[in-house]
Structure formats: C-alpha cells, structure tokens
C-alpha cells in the first residue's frame, strides 16, 4: 500500500511537472498509436481473436437485435437498413456526425436511440443498457479495420471547436486536462495503467475492469472522476463534442470495436 501511494505521488508530480509548456494547439499525437499498443500481450491477444474476445458476445447479440421486429409498427432495423454488412459498413468511422434535420451532433448511440424511438416507435434503450451497447457494437463492428474519418467542417465546425476546447480545459481538483495525460505523458505508467494517447477507436470496448462492454462515454466519465471532476451525464453534448475532437485526433487509426482494454 505504501508502495502504491508513493507511486501515486510520483505520478502526480510527474504530471504537474509535464504541464509546463504544453501548447494549447490542436496537435495530433505523433506517431499516432492505438490504445491497443499499450495493453499487455494477453489483452492484445484477446482482442485479436474473435473466438476469445468477449466483446464478440455483444456483437452477436446486436446481430440478433438487428433482425428483431419491435415497436408499434413491428419494424426491425433490417426492415429499413437491410443487411448491416452492406449498409452500415464505414458508418461508425464517420461518427459523431451532424444530423441534418435537427442540426445536433449525434454519436452512434444517440443515432441508434433516435431510430429506435422515432422510426421504430419502440422504447428508447437506455445508455449503457445491454441492448444499446449490443446494437452499437454491432454497427461499429461493421467498420472494423476502416480508417476513422470524421467531418469537422461546415455544420460540424462549432462542435469540433467545443470538443477541442474541452480537451485542453483543466478540470477537477487535480486541475488537469486530457492533454496532460494523453499528449504529454503517453507511454508512461500511471499506477497500474500505461497511459495511451486517449483515442476512442476502441469503443464500444470490453474492459476487464468492467467485465463487460461499455461505451466511450463510460470511459470518459472515468477520466473525469480520475482527476476528481464531476462527470457529465451520458449523452451530454459536451461528451459528444469531445468524441468528435477525439475522432479527429485519431486520424491514421482504424476502428477496432469491440477492442479489449484493461
């Protein structure tokens, strides 16, 4: 325990020292590296093998849900979208994306909730429910291996700017921004974790700590409480904008969902 505490103090000192001279510029990490590279070999092996990756259970459930007729009109996702491996290929790589009709920035979860609620006339699945995670993982999985490619221009620009500002904003009692850990210190150890560059291309991902699949926002809430800042509620506009900035930063990486993380 003493050893742990000393490590913690050391890590904090290291972070604060590193804050000097961090530019407030929208920089991309160079070279860009997936969070997978910072995982233990066993964890990487688990992600790489579909027969061993527990995240594939959520994908399989999502595949079943895709064809299930629900709601007043007894429509399934397939009734409108047909085969997911054709119509959803590459979609997740472009999210978050501005919904032209409402002008809102939607991540994949919000988009699926919208289809469930408005187009299927069915109950909207809650954030982090198995149903929403399974559908999201299934749709995201159709883009696995495809490069992350979001639009940050036009209607998306104000959201991108907000996300970027949030990324560099110091928050919480520890007064740290995302950039202090994920730009200035990636590759270093923080307690039991090796800090990655903080990309979102893994999600929805299976985390050993969660013993389940969870969303990118669940991960972001952890990063907030870690610096003793109040997390936003799931689906908050602040997080969706941050997701857009993260996707822009992840240029050069491919969608890995469902990845496996510690």
């Amino acid at each position: 325990m003493l050893y742990r505490q000393r490590l913690a103090w050391g890590a904090l000192a290291l972070l604060l020292a590193a804050t000097v001279g961090v530019a407030q510029e929208p920089i991309r990490p160079d070279p860009v590296r997936s969070g997978r590279d910072f995982q233990a070999p066993e964890t990487r092996a688990m992600q790489d093998d579909d027969g061993a990756n527990p995240g594939m259970l959520w994908v399989a459930r999502g595949r079943a849900l895709w064809d299930e007729a629900v709601g007043a009109a007894r429509r399934s996702c397939a009734s409108c979208h047909g085969r997911a491996d054709e119509t959803m290929r590459g979609v997740a790589a472009q999210y978050p994306r501005v919904d032209p009709s409402s002008g809102r920035l939607l991540n994949l979860e919000l988009r699926i909730q919208q289809c469930r609620g408005e187009r299927q006339d069915a109950p909207v699945p809650r954030f982090e429910s198995d149903e929403l995670l399974a559908l999201t993982a299934y749709v995201a999985h159709q883009s696995r291996g495809m490069p992350v490619a979001v639009s940050v221009d036009g209607a998306a620009r104000p959201f991108f700017d907000a996300g970027r500002a949030a990324y560099f904003q110091r928050i919480g009692q520890l007064n740290l921004a995302c950039t202090h850990c994920h730009d200035a210190n990636w590759g270093r150890m923080l307690r039991g974790d090796r800090l990655s560059q903080g990309h979102g291309n893994a999600y929805p991902a299976y985390r050993l700590d969660w013993q389940a699949v969870g969303s990118l926002q669940r991960r972001l809430r952890f990063c907030n409480t870690g610096v003793r800042a109040e997390p936003h509620p799931f689906g908050a506009a602040e997080y969706v904008a941050l997701e857009l900035y993260l996707a822009w930063r992840a240029k050069g990486l491919t969608v890995e969902s469902p990845a496996v993380r510690r």
Partner: peptide, 9 residues
C-alpha cells in the same frame, strides 16, 4: 473448441 457465454459470474 472455443466456447464463450455472456454471464456476470
């Protein structure tokens, strides 16, 4: 054979 099942245990 590789067998996986979703369960919280």
């Amino acid at each position: 054979v590789r067998a996986l099942i979703q369960h919280p245990m």
